[in-house]
């Protein structure tokens, strides 16, 4: 998503929303997360969510604008967001693109295709940031 952000940030706005953890240590932890030292328990407080979100942004040098879902999981429930999902909202506040449920149907290239259709192809050659999750 970082590459797409770098390509289209002059034409569209971007917002990353942190929702409840998908593979915390106290639930369904993945070996890949242990290997990459991404080990967090499921946050029980908003402060814990803020801390993990900040860890993510700093460790991944993640440049996109960021918001954090509340402990009622309002954003998650409204958008069926967990574990990961993509949307595009148009200028009139309507859903313009609704991606599938991640991880199997989480496809940033579908967002790129929407942006290409709307704005034409754009490719920055100097995208330095490595593509982190989400």
């Amino acid at each position: 998503m970082v590459k797409i952000y770098n390509d289209y940030k002059d034409r569209a706005d971007f917002l990353t929303v942190y929702v409840r953890e998908a593979h915390p240590t106290d639930e369904w932890q993945m070996k890949s997360n242990v290997k990459e030292d991404v080990c967090y328990a499921q946050p029980k407080t908003l402060e814990q969510r803020v801390a993990i979100a900040n860890d993510f942004v700093q460790r991944q040098k993640y440049p996109l604008p960021f918001g954090i879902d509340d402990m009622n999981n309002a954003a998650d429930l409204a958008y069926s967001a967990w574990p990961e999902r993509l949307y595009v909202i148009d200028e009139h506040g309507r859903i313009a693109f609704a991606g599938g449920m991640g991880p199997f149907k989480y496809d940033p290239e579908e967002v790129r295709a929407w942006l290409v259709k709307r704005f034409g192809p754009v490719t920055q050659t100097s995208s330095a940031a490595a593509p982190p999750k989400p």
Binding site: M1, I4, Y5, Y8, R11, A12, D13, F14, L15, T16, V17, Y18, V19, R20, E21, A22, H23, P24, Q29, M30, N33, V38, C39, Y40, I52, A53, D55, F56, L64, P65, G67, A75, D76, Y79, A81, W82, P83, E84, R85, L86, Y87, V88, I89, D90, E91, G93, A96, G102, V111, L115, R118, K133, P134
Partner: peptide, 19 residues
């Protein structure tokens, strides 16, 4: 509010977590 970020341009929203 999420809707504060909409209006002038399309808004790409990425939901996810760290793990």
């Amino acid at each position: 509010h999420l809707r504060e970020r909409t209006g002038s341009r399309p808004l790409v929203v990425i939901f996810g977590s760290y793990t």
